[in-house]
Design a protein around this nucleic acid. Structure first.
Length: 427
RNA sequence: GCGGGCGUCGCCAAGUGGUUAAGGCAGCGGCUUGUGGCGCCGCUAUUCGGGGGUUCGAAUCCCCUCGCUCGCCCCA
């Protein structure tokens, strides 16, 4: 029979990994709450039109990476490839924006049909933040600070913030013409991909990795020079705020971003330890999106982080620090050993009352010799072992022993044991 | 979608045409049927991702296929 396995690019998270994910999620939740962000959850499945209109028909994400299908009612549905479009849709649909500005965060799986590689899966997970109804440039810096500080709280080092301004759509339309004209005269110097982009999405050429194209671009007219006076001032205010917050950044003229809805501030936080998929967090301002999806004109900033990439970085850094054996993280505090029959039944009841008192308890269910059970108790990483044998069952007592220190064994009435153990655990 | 590397037990792995597919870790059992950590002994792959082919004979050679992985691309 053919072996059943998970689909390509869809990863199982086994207990060892899951502990790391929970740590990131718990850290992020506390961090977001302090930043005054509220959580929003939207469906994984949306109408295809939402992404086509929101992200842009010409983008790679919409053009070739979406998981789309017709449902039983012949409606075109798509597994969300990113979070922002859904959040904006939900905010419009429920009139959230009529109640004033919204600071939201979200998390969960996204789907993109791509060839998997390190830090890139078909089902991947993002943590994202959206500030809806905030035109103030300092908010851009605040949003960036929230991302930057979260990464700091997670203990991730070796990160760089790259920053650019895309200006307004009018600025870009103007620049687009200038760039197309300039590059058009130099077509021959461009790589093949860039030549096709000349017609479809010329700004993306700025992001090309082709050495020939990059060399040519050094003398190209810059987007910064095409920005309006107002856009320039706006960008200056963002930089000023970042400097005041003591967050270092590097101006990156080639940073264009792949989704159509961005304008003004665009940024990425990258790591030098991730290989080809270096971006840990990416985002920017998207002032036109709400209106484009049928809502009131609303200025917004946001970003998204790749969970898998965070996990990759944390794992790598833990390995470098040679952190303690990870299996001990899930170790029970106490391990219950018993003989079969009546004693085992008492052990079952005792384990339940210990858990009710907040202790992490594991009970041996093997029914093998006490020596074996002790061996397993030791391997489980537990600190305490509790024994109920025939004699103890008869007397309704249990023996308590510290596995990691002297191993002195004491006998208590089963009813007293939770209190006794709790007192010992506290010191 | 395009290129490179790889696929032997739950994990790490030796084996590169010849009788029974090393070893280590983990697991299980025993020495020790009421007491762990050490040690010793034993058990755990009719089978080498899958399917064809070559050969007296294949994990080892050839073809196809699937998967993993790295890079391009794309992005979180």
């Amino acid at each position: 029979m053919e072996k059943l396995r998970s689909l390509r690019g869809m990863a199982d998270l086994l207990p060892e990994a899951t502990r790391r994910w929970q740590h990131i999620e718990a850290t992020a939740l506390a961090h977001f709450q302090r930043a005054g962000l509220a959580e929003i959850r939207t469906p994984l499945l949306e109408a295809t039109a939402l992404f086509a209109r929101g992200i842009g028909e010409a983008t790679d994400v919409v053009g070739k990476e979406m998981y789309s299908f017709l449902d039983r009612g012949e409606r075109s549905c798509t597994l969300r490839p990113e979070g922002t479009a859904s959040v904006v849709r939900a905010a419009i649909q429920h009139g959230l924006l009529a109640q004033g500005s919204q600071r939201l965060w979200y998390g969960g799986p996204m789907f993109r049909y791509e060839r998997p590689q390190a830090g890139r899966l078909r089902q991947f997970h993002q943590l994202g933040v959206e500030y809806l109804g905030y035109a103030d440039p300092f908010t851009d810096a605040e949003a960036i600070a929230v991302a930057w500080d979260l990464l700091g709280a997670l203990g991730i080092s070796g990160l760089e913030l790259e920053l650019n301004s895309l200006g307004t759509s009018a600025d870009r339309a103007r620049y687009r013409k200038i760039l197309m004209a300039w590059l058009g005269e130099r077509r021959g110097g461009l790589d093949e991909d860039s030549r096709t982009r000349l017609a479809t999405n010329p700004l993306r050429i700025l992001d090309s990795k082709d050495p020939g194209t990059r060399a040519l671009l050094r003398d190209a007219p810059s987007l910064a020079d095409a920005l309006s006076e107002e856009s320039c001032q706006r960008f200056a205010a963002v930089r000023q705020a970042l400097t005041a917050l003591d967050i270092p950044f590097r101006l990156e003229a080639g940073l264009v971003r792949g989704l159509d809805y961005y304008n003004h501030t665009a940024f990425e936080i990258t790591s030098n330890q991730l290989g080809a998929q270096a971006t840990v967090c990416g985002g920017g301002r998207y002032d036109g999106l709400v209106e484009q999806l049928g809502g009131p004109a609303t200025a917004c900033v946001g970003w998204a982080m790749g969970m898998e990439r965070l996990v990759l970085l944390l794992t790598r850094q833990e390995e470098e620090r040679k952190a303690v054996a990870p299996h001990l993280d899930g170790a029970p505090q106490c391990y219950l050993v018993s003989r079969p029959g009546r004693a085992a039944l008492q052990a079952l009841a005792l384990s339940r009352s210990l858990r009710a008192r907040g202790l992490a308890v594991e009970r041996d269910v093997s029914g093998s010799t006490l020596a074996k059970q002790f061996r397993r108790a030791d391997r489980s990483g537990a600190t305490w072992v509790i024994t109920i044998g025939e004699a103890e069952a008869e007397a309704c007592t249990a023996r308590l022993r510290h596995l990691r220190r002297d191993g002195v064994e004491r006998e208590f009435a089963q009813g007293q044991l939770p209190d006794q153990l709790l007192a010992l655990v506290r010191d």
